[in-house]
């Protein structure tokens, strides 16, 4: 890496660092006021994220492992989100919980990505994703007070948003229809994308055509295709949709939430599907989290959960163009 005389300095201004401290204080105050418990789960886990689009860092522990004899070596994953252990706490009867922690994702660095970033993740028992979207809105109003407006607030279904912006129904469109939409916006087909990866083509339309037109306010998008459900439950219908939502502010993706899947057998199937896709794309196999499966088999209470990127929130609050403006020491200076 190129070294310069200024490499030791933070890339964020002192004002940005103060804003970070202020927002974190406000977030804790918000949840404290709501009776949501702050928790702490391991950064290092024996199981990793199976999501085919997310790549975990791994490390190896050398030494005694309780219950496993001496001299053991243990492969450990740095968490990409605290989702799995937080759900185990929920299954153990914690009630509503939140966590502020650093998470780690390999391969992600750019204007709005850093491989290590801060996630605010919270779960509310008895909430569905509609209740949780309201909660996100209340939290953002409180936390961003005096920095930036969240108005106007818009709600869209994934389907209606695509229809409105592109005239294309994302549930029935073929890849060639998506190519036509891209062409209509002066965009070429992405290099390396194959026609069988339909969701990736939808991602291109979303990121290249729709996101730039979302406007300055808070936008909630819900009812994602079942193929993009991740760990959200499905809502029956024609077609069935995922009870999943994304939150955008100022046109930037800020948070992703679910009315949580609580069915252990369905979770097992999704893990297996992820693992088949990882295999097909040549990604490393990831150990399924058996403890999460066991927790769901025991009983995960009806709940909704969401993860929100704190650096993105800071970028929005401070109107920064780059994530480097809100992190003291991003990858290039870490």
């Amino acid at each position: 890496m190129l070294q310069t005389a200024d490499d030791w300095r933070p890339t964020a201004s002192l004002d940005a660092l103060k804003l970070r401290a202020t927002l974190l204080t406000r977030i804790r105050a918000y949840f404290g006021g709501q009776g949501v418990l702050e928790v702490d789960t391991p950064v290092l886990s024996s199981a990793g994220a199976t999501d085919p689009a997310i790549h975990s860092f791994t490390t190896t522990y050398h030494g005694p492992v309780p219950g496993a004899g001496n001299g053991s070596e243990l492969k450990l994953y740095l968490h990409t989100s605290p989702e799995f252990p937080m759900k185990r706490l929920l299954a153990a009867g914690s009630g509503s919980i939140y966590q502020l922690c650093k998470v780690f994702r390999d391969g992600e660095s750019g204007g709005s990505h850093n491989p290590e970033f801060t996630l605010l993740e919270w779960y509310r028992t008895g909430f569905d994703h509609f209740d949780l979207m309201d909660d996100v809105q209340r939290l953002l109003r409180t936390v961003l007070d005096g920095t930036r407006s969240v108005e106007p607030v818009d709600h869209w279904t994934y389907r209606d948003l695509f229809l409105e912006v592109t005239g294309m129904d994302p549930f029935t469109a073929a890849v060639k229809d998506m190519q036509a939409v891209l062409q209509g916006h002066g965009l070429h087909d992405p290099v390396g994308l194959t026609p069988d990866d339909r969701d990736a083509w939808l991602d291109v339309v979303m990121t290249h055509v729709i996101e730039p037109r979302l406007g300055p306010g808070l936008v909630f998008i819900r009812d994602y295709p079942a193929s993009q459900a991740a760990l959200a439950r499905l809502r029956p219908g024609q077609p069935a949709v995922a009870a999943r939502f994304e939150v955008y502010l100022g046109g930037m993706e800020l948070a992703n939430g679910y009315h949580e899947l609580t069915d252990a057998a369905e979770l097992q199937r999704r893990f297996e599907k992820d693992s088949t896709r990882r295999d097909a794309q040549g990604s490393e196999a990831v150990a399924m989290d058996q403890k999460l499966l066991a927790a769901l088999a025991s009983e995960l209470p009806d709940c909704a959960g969401v993860a929100l990127g704190i650096e993105r929130l800071l970028m929005i609050a401070s109107q920064s163009a780059s994530i480097e403006d809100v992190i003291a020491f991003p990858l290039a200076r870490a």
Partner: peptide
């Protein structure tokens, strides 16, 4: 670098064609 939290990562680049001088975009 463009990547939805739950989706495919892309590199969206602005490029100058050195023969024509034209600026184009590719993903």
């Amino acid at each position: 670098f463009v990547k939805p939290g739950k989706g495919q990562a892309f590199n969206r680049v602005k490029i100058r064609n050195l023969k024509t001088g034209r600026v184009i975009e590719r993903t």
